[in-house]
Write a protein that binds this DNA or RNA. Structure first.
Lengths: 219, 219
DNA sequence: TAGATTGTTAATCGATTAACAATC
DNA sequence: TAGATTGTTAATCGATTAACAATC
C-alpha cells in the first residue's frame, strides 16, 4: 500500500511468513529486541542469513542491541499488506469451510469472512459461526455489492475450477484453494493452493528415513 | 523400504511432491511418456532442471522419447514410501478432523485412518464417515494395540502440544499438525506443520502487488 | 538414417556463510 | 570505555542454466 515498493525478490518474500511466526511468538513472550543470533538459532538458520535478509529490506537493527521485534513485525505486516481488509467469502459450507471460518489467522491476515455460499440450496439462510449461508444464485450480485475480493474454495474438487472461473469474472482476484485442481487465469488473479498432500508426502518420507535427516529447517 | 537409499539432498526431496502432482495429472490424461520440455513448461521450470533432477535419482528416461510417466511415479512413490501402510488416528473430531477424514490423499500416501479421538467424552462411540470416535482414555492402549504410527492433530491449539507429547510416548512418530504450535522432540519423531497462515500471507502479498510478479512457480 | 531428446559436463548465477570494520 | 551486535563486503557453496555429445 503506502508508497512504492522496491521489487523484492520473490525468494525473500517467501521467507517472510516464517520470520513473522517466530518474531510474533517472541513478541508474545514479551521480547522487545532480538539478536540475529537468537532468532537464527530459534529458526535453525544462520545468523548471517538473518542479518542479510533483514538488511535487504527490514530496517530496525540497533548496533549492540539487536532488532526491534515489534518494528520488524510491523514492516512485514506492511509489506505483505496484512492490514488491508479483504472482504472474503467461503465457497462450500461443509466441514472444511466451517472449520476455516473460525480460523484465527484469517483475521490476522486481513481476510474477513462475509458469507458462505453452498451448492446445497437447503443450507441457504442458515447461520454458521455467525456467518450466513447464501444460495449460489446470489454470487454475482453479492460479490459486486459487497466488494468481495477474495474467495476460499472449500468445496468438492469437481465443481472447483468452474466456480473459480465464474467468481473471478465477477471481480474476485484472490483465491485460497484446497483442491488438487489446476487453473490458470489470464488477468490479475492470484491463487494460493494449500497442498496438504505435499505435507503428507514429506511426512511419509521423514518417517521412512528415521535418523537419516539431521535438523529440519522447515518448522 | 527396499534396499538402501543414497542420501538424497533434502532439497530434491522437497521437489518430489510437485513432480508427483504434475506427472500424476499427465498420467490421468493417458500420457505414457513425457519430455523434459513438456513437463518443464507445465511446471514453469526449465527443462534442464527437470533433466538434472530426474537424472540425479529417477532413472526412466529414454533417448529421443522422454520419461516414462508411470515409472517415474513409481519411483517417487517408492522414495517417499507412500505404499507402506501407516496406521493413523485423528485427534479432534470437529469440523477439521471430519473434513480430513475423507481426504483422498491420505490413502494415496498410505495413511489409513483407524479412529478419531476427542476430548469430548459424549462423542465417544459415535461413527463419522465410517470411523469410530474413541474416548481419550483409550489412547495409550489403542495406539499400542493397533500399532498406530501417525497422528493428525486437528484439535484446538491449546491442548495440542501436551497431547502430542503424550502420544509420542506411546509410540507415534509422525504428526501432521494444523496448529500454530512449536514443539521439539528428542527422539525420532517427525512433524509436518500445515501452515495455512503462510498461504494467506502470500495471497495477501500477491493481491497487493498485482502485475509486479511475473509467473509464479508455486502451483 | 534423420529426428528427437536424454545424460552430463561446464559456465553462470544466486544464495549462504564467513569475517570484520562500524557503531551503539 | 568495553562489550555486543549490526551492516556490509568478500569468499564459498550450491543450484540452475546452457550446451552438446551420446543414443534411441
Amino acid at each position: 500500500m503506502s508508497g512504492q515498493y522496491r521489487d523484492y525478490p520473490k525468494h525473500l518474500i517467501r521467507k517472510l511468513p516464517r520470520y513473522y511466526r517466530y518474531l510474533n511468538e517472541q513478541k508474545q513472550f514479551g521480547k522487545e529486541y532480538i539478536s540475529s543470533n537468537e532468532l537464527a538459532s530459534l529458526m535453525g538458520i544462520s545468523p548471517s542469513q538473518v542479518r542479510q535478509d533483514f538488511n535487504r529490506f527490514l530496517y530496525n537493527g540497533y548496533h549492540g542491541v539487536g532488532y526491534n521485534v515489534s518494528a520488524i513485525l510491523e514492516q512485514i505486516t506492511e509489506l505483505l499488506d496484512l492490514k488491508t481488509k479483504k472482504n472474503t467469502i467461503i465457497i462450500g459450507a461443509g466441514n472444511l469451510g466451517q472449520s476455516l471460518s473460525n480460523y484465527d489467522e484469517l483475521k490476522n491476515c486481513g481476510f474477513e469472512i462475509k458469507a458462505f455460499f453452498d451448492i446445497n440450496p437447503r443450507l441457504a439462510g442458515a447461520v454458521i459461526n455467525g456467518i450466513k449461508v447464501c444460495d449460489m444464485e446470489w454470487l454475482e450480485e453479492y460479490i459486486k455489492a459487497e466488494n468481495i475480493v477474495a474467495a476460499i474454495l472449500a468445496l468438492p474438487t469437481e465443481g472447483t475450477s468452474e466456480i473459480a472461473r465464474k467468481i473471478s469474472e465477477y471481480g474476485v482476484t484472490m483465491f485460497l484453494n484446497f483442491n488438487p485442481v489446476f487453473f490458470e487465469f489470464e488477468r490479475d488473479v492470484f491463487i494460493e493452493n494449500v497442498h496438504i498432500d505435499d505435507n503428507l508426502m514429506m511426512l511419509s518420507y521423514k518417517g521412512a528415513h528415521k535418523g537419516a535427516g539431521e535438523r529440519d529447517d522447515e518448522e
